[in-house]
Computed example of a mutant assay.
Amino acid sequence: MKLSEKATLLALTLAVVAFSLSTLAAEPVTPKLTDKLSRVLQQEMRAIQSAMAAIHVAMVTGQHDEVASQAQQIHDSFILKQSLTEQDKKDLMSAVPEGFVKLDKEFHQLAASLADAAEQKHTQKQYELYNEMTDSCIACHSRYVSDRFSGLADQEK
């Protein structure tokens, strides 16, 4: 076997291993949260759920101002920007893996982009971003909250 073939085979093997590891579900974060953090996260999730439902209705009825308002509210609810104590922040960061934080930041950035698309009255872009936000919810819930959403535990990551 030539050196270039060996290098290609090694690269392919590493890619397969990396992909396999990335599809494993992470350990649920819920049991690691303090009672206060659990309550705050659940409160935020209920607000996001309500806003996502309102956005859907507003999107399909052409209410761009409502889409923008609700999307901005989701963006502004970002858990790490809330008035948590320093200890709460430390507890949160020790309870959740880096991937959780990354997904959360990306989700809230998508919400900001959705608000921008709504302000521009760009319905197709709103639809695309809303779908990306939904995908992000499923990814996070299936990886980090599978203990609460067992129907998502087997989702492809």
Results as ranks from 00 to 15, higher is better:
Met1His: 02
Glu5Asn: 11
Glu5Leu: 14
Glu5Trp: 09
Glu5Val: 13
Lys6Thr: 03
Ala7Trp: 08
Leu10Cys: 08
Leu10Phe: 09
Ala11Asn: 04
Leu12Lys: 00
Leu14Asn: 06
Leu14Phe: 05
Val16Glu: 07
Val16Leu: 13
Val17Ile: 14
Val17Cys: 12
Val17His: 05
Ala18Thr: 15
Ser20Gln: 08
Ser20Lys: 12
Ala25Arg: 15
Ala25Asn: 13
Ala26Ser: 06
Glu27Gln: 13
Val29Gly: 04
Pro31Asn: 13
Leu33Asn: 00
Thr34Val: 02
Lys36Ile: 02
Ser38Lys: 15
Leu41Met: 14
Ala47Thr: 13
Ala47Asp: 07
Ile48Tyr: 04
Ile48Ala: 04
Ser50Phe: 11
Met52Arg: 12
Met52Gly: 13
Ala53Pro: 01
Ala54Ile: 08
Ala54Lys: 15
Ile55Gly: 05
Ile55Ala: 03
Ile55Cys: 02
Ile55Met: 02
Ala58Leu: 06
Met59Glu: 09
Val60Glu: 13
Val60Leu: 14
Val60Gln: 12
Thr61Phe: 15
Thr61His: 15
Thr61Met: 15
Gly62Arg: 08
Gly62Asp: 09
Gly62Ser: 08
Gln63Leu: 07
Glu66Ala: 15
Val67Tyr: 01
Val67Ser: 05
Ser69Phe: 06
Ser69Pro: 02
Ala71Arg: 00
Gln72Lys: 10
Ile74Arg: 05
Asp76Ala: 11
Ser77Val: 00
Phe78Pro: 01
Ile79Ala: 05
Ile79Met: 07
Leu80Cys: 02
Lys81Trp: 05
Ser83Thr: 11
Glu86Ile: 00
Glu86Phe: 00
Gln87Thr: 14
Lys90Ser: 15
Met93Lys: 11
Met93Tyr: 12
Ala95Trp: 02
Ala95Pro: 03
Val96Ser: 02
Glu98Asn: 08
Gly99Leu: 09
Phe100Glu: 05
Val101Asp: 04
Lys102Asn: 13
Lys102Ser: 15
Leu103Lys: 09
Glu106Ser: 06
Glu106Tyr: 08
Gln109Thr: 11
Leu110Phe: 07
Leu110Thr: 11
Ala111Gly: 00
Ala111Trp: 00
Ala112Gln: 08
Ala115Met: 03
Ala115Glu: 03
Ala117Asp: 02
Ala117Pro: 02
Ala118Leu: 01
Gln120Arg: 10
Gln124Leu: 11
Gln126Thr: 05
Gln126Asp: 05
Gln126Tyr: 01
Tyr127Arg: 15
Tyr127Pro: 03
Tyr127Thr: 12
Leu129Gly: 05
Leu129His: 06
Tyr130Arg: 08
Asn131Pro: 00
Thr134Trp: 12
Asp135Phe: 07
Asp135Gln: 10
Cys137Arg: 03
Cys137Pro: 03
Cys137Tyr: 02
Ile138His: 03
Ile138Phe: 09
Ala139Asp: 11
Ala139Asn: 12
His141Gln: 06
His141Gly: 01
Ser142His: 00
Ser142Glu: 00
Asp147Ser: 05
Asp147Ile: 00
Arg148Leu: 10
Phe149Met: 07
Phe149Asp: 01
Ser150His: 09
Leu152Cys: 03
Leu152Lys: 04
Ala153Pro: 04
Ala153Lys: 11
Glu156Ser: 11
Lys157Leu: 12
Lys157Glu: 15
